[in-house]
Amino acid sequence: MTTPADYVHGYSTHETRRLGDQADTLAALLHSGVAYPAGSRVLEVGCGVGAQTVHLVTASPEAHFTAVDISADSLAQARTRVTKYAPDAHISWHQANLLELPFSDAEFDHVFVCFVLEHLTVPGRALTALRRVLRPGGTLTLIEGDHGSTFFHPDSAYAHAVIDCQIQLQATAGGNALIGRQLHPLVTAAGYEEVAVRPHPVYADRSRPTLVNGFTRNTFIAMIESVRDEALAAGLITPPDWDRGMSDLHRTATGDGTFHYTFFKALAVNPQS
């Protein structure tokens, strides 16, 4: 069994740009309160192309970061991105599987995981594995989305259908695009304490053009558009219904449209014993 599910969004230049748009647009929302003390040892698992890493190291310039990803190509892009935007960051890079981390027990004071569990076939095992490298009393910060939290105006059954295609494809690949709603039981079952999960909603209308462009268009709609060929090949939807759904989804980013999505952030502590 492979630990990570297939990355349903792919590794294209388009996807790299989408991840950057997402991280930059949502930085204030998702990274609020995420700052680590000087000298603390912080592990970011599944750093990908470094879209979140840049914001982490910028907010905690005196912390010592270790960034891990299973993809060598993604790590190379992450290193380039961080070198460009935060050249003085204290950071080391490692290619590794999350379940086989090459670190000592209790090596880190804090662990940060963002948009990773949704792509894993065994998220509970991953959370348990992270406890090994997190010192007793150390903290876990975990951020995930939930595509089932999406609603919009004008409403459209066709738009919901194309979103459901992405959810189904991710499930077929071994992931879970609805994992946000499951964070509290997952983290608790993995043995963490003081687990607190809070929703972080994103709402966009024409009075918030940065969110309309950065999130509705360039993050969410771009993500759905990227699975068109796979959805049609799998017979999940007909071409006319796909085109109607995408047209209706794009309308939510126009003058009379609105769009809502909810992220979930979990904070937890590794028990002292």
Rank of each mutant, 00 (worst) to 15 (best):
S60P: 07
C47T: 07
E100M: 13
E225R: 15
E44R: 09
H94V: 14
H31Q: 07
A233H: 13
L134S: 04
E107R: 09
V195S: 14
H250C: 09
L142Q: 00
A159F: 12
S60A: 12
A222C: 08
A204P: 03
T128G: 12
L98C: 13
N218E: 11
W93D: 04
T252E: 02
L183G: 08
V49T: 12
M246V: 14
N270A: 10
D164S: 10
A196N: 12
L249G: 01
R132V: 09
L101N: 05
S273P: 12
T141L: 09
T141G: 01
L211K: 01
G10T: 08
S74F: 12
Y203C: 09
G180S: 04
T16R: 09
L183T: 09
D105N: 13
L134D: 04
V197I: 11
P209H: 07
V49H: 05
L30T: 05
D73M: 02
V269G: 02
R17H: 10
H55I: 01
S60T: 01
T219E: 02
A161K: 14
C114W: 05
P102K: 01
A106P: 02
K84M: 14
L267N: 14
T139K: 09
E144H: 02
C47Y: 00
F65T: 00
P201W: 10
L249I: 08
A171G: 05
H153G: 02
A233N: 12
V116W: 00
L267C: 10
A5R: 05
T254G: 09
Y192T: 07
G39F: 13
A171D: 10
G48C: 05
Q272L: 15
A96Y: 03
H147C: 10
I163E: 09
G214S: 06
Q272M: 07
V133L: 10
A96I: 08
A129P: 09
S149I: 02
A159R: 06
H9F: 15
W93K: 03
I163H: 11
A23R: 03
A59Q: 11
G138F: 05
A157N: 04
I237H: 06
P154A: 02
T254V: 04
G235I: 03
K84Y: 15
R131G: 10
V116G: 04
A157V: 14
S104L: 08
A27R: 15
H55R: 13
H31F: 15
T141I: 11
A157C: 02
N97F: 06
F65P: 00
A190D: 07
A72G: 06
L183Q: 04
A231K: 06
S12G: 06
G48D: 03
Y11G: 00
H94E: 13
G148E: 03
L140V: 03
A129Q: 09
A231D: 07
P4Y: 00
S92R: 15
N270C: 08
R228S: 12
R18G: 00
A38S: 13
I224G: 04
V8E: 15
F108M: 01
V269K: 13
G124E: 10
R17F: 11
Y192F: 15
E225G: 12
Y158F: 07
A157D: 14
G137E: 11
T139E: 11
G245I: 02
P154E: 08
F263A: 10
P154N: 05
T252K: 08
E230G: 12
T141R: 14
V82G: 05
A63T: 00
C165Y: 15
D164A: 14
A234W: 04
S207T: 15
F264S: 02
G10R: 10
